[in-house]
């Protein structure tokens, strides 16, 4: 059995094979490397070129509009000139809040990591409870529906009063902002677990803990990750706003500080970073979801 397989491979690599054995038809012909690279390059180009063109066009318009005298906002060329130092040296640290953008962003990300992790754990736990128990849903759902409409910043004074410190308050705001979509989506996912899976679990006699880990979480995973993805977006929205008010190191306060010192170019640069990081966070959770729920989405 081994012999013909080896032979086929060799034929595939050989530039021209004169031996036309009938087995050759069985193996999919591997296209030459260069062809594969060409195809990959083409696929990448199809995806990358259109957004690049659009960005270039928008930048051009921006440049043309803001270049005129009396313009309130700087054109992109000015932005680049003003923020060159910040772009090329994100790691400086002159003490206090005079730090490179890297430190501001990492401080913000750290707060998000704390708040969001707590939100994920609490959200999945509460969502499971509400999805599983009709009485928990009847009791808690109206409360959730009202609380989730409260804007993130409205919580900030209250949490400042409770914690008397900026750091835990900011983390609390992240938590309270991102927990609702996680709860609600988890609950929907748990409620939508097909009766068939529950029957299987009943026949096999899984105990509640096994049912939770082996049936509930994987079955509800697509929903849970939808909630987690909405949650990470909201927490990134909330942190920038919260940091503007609590001060200290963080990208939110960096923006506020730049505004107070009329460094409009720095604001634009910071916004650019905020957007990119928000996008990356969203994609990270989406990729994690895709990895965890492989096979669950389709049945």
């Amino acid at each position: 059995m081994n012999m013909p397989v080896k032979k086929m491979e060799m034929e595939g690599i050989a530039p021209s094979s004169s031996v036309a054995a009938p087995v050759v038809a069985m193996t999919p012909k591997r296209p030459p490397r260069s062809e594969a690279y060409a195809r990959m390059a083409k696929e990448t180009a199809v995806r990358v070129i259109p957004p690049l063109v659009v960005i270039a066009l928008l930048t051009l318009i921006w440049e043309l509009v803001c270049r005129r005298a009396g313009s309130t906002l700087p054109p992109p060329s000015r932005v680049f000139k003003d923020t060159k130092e910040l772009i090329f040296d994100p790691f400086f640290d002159h003490g206090g809040i005079d730090k490179g953008l890297f430190w501001h962003l990492s401080a913000s990300l750290q707060r998000v990591a704390y708040g969001y992790s707590i939100a994920a754990i609490v959200g999945i736990a509460l969502g499971t409870l509400v999805g599983q128990s009709v009485w928990a849903m009847r009791g808690l759902d109206p409360l959730f529906q009202v609380l989730r409409t409260i804007p993130p910043l409205a919580w900030l004074p209250l949490s400042l009063a409770a914690f008397r410190d900026g750091q835990p308050s900011a983390i609390f705001v992240i938590f309270i902002t991102s927990v609702w979509p996680i709860i609600i989506n988890t609950a929907v996912g748990i409620r939508n677990i097909p009766q068939d899976y529950r029957n299987v679990a009943a026949v096999v006699q899984l105990n509640p803990l096994e049912f939770f880990s082996k049936i509930m979480i994987p079955a509800a995973a697509p929903y849970i990750f939808t909630g987690l993805r909405i949650g990470i977006g909201l927490s990134w929205l909330a942190i920038v706003a919260a940091e503007m008010l609590i001060g200290g190191v963080g990208i939110g306060f960096f923006i506020w500080d730049a505004w107070n010192s009329s460094h409009i170019s720095e604001i634009i640069l910071a916004l650019f970073y905020v957007g990119i990081i928000g996008f990356v966070l969203d994609r990270l959770i989406a990729a994690l979801g895709k990895f965890v729920t492989h096979g669950t989405a389709q049945s």
């Binding site: 068939d196 899976y197 299987v200 006699q205 082996k214 994987p218």
Partner: peptide
Amino acid sequence: PGPDRAVVFQNHSLLPWLTVYENVKLGVDK
């Protein structure tokens, strides 16, 4: 319900996130 009266469901009811082996093993392990 219990494994002494195992059911073959109409729509197979295999758990889509487990492999064929793991689906069978779920019951066996219990």
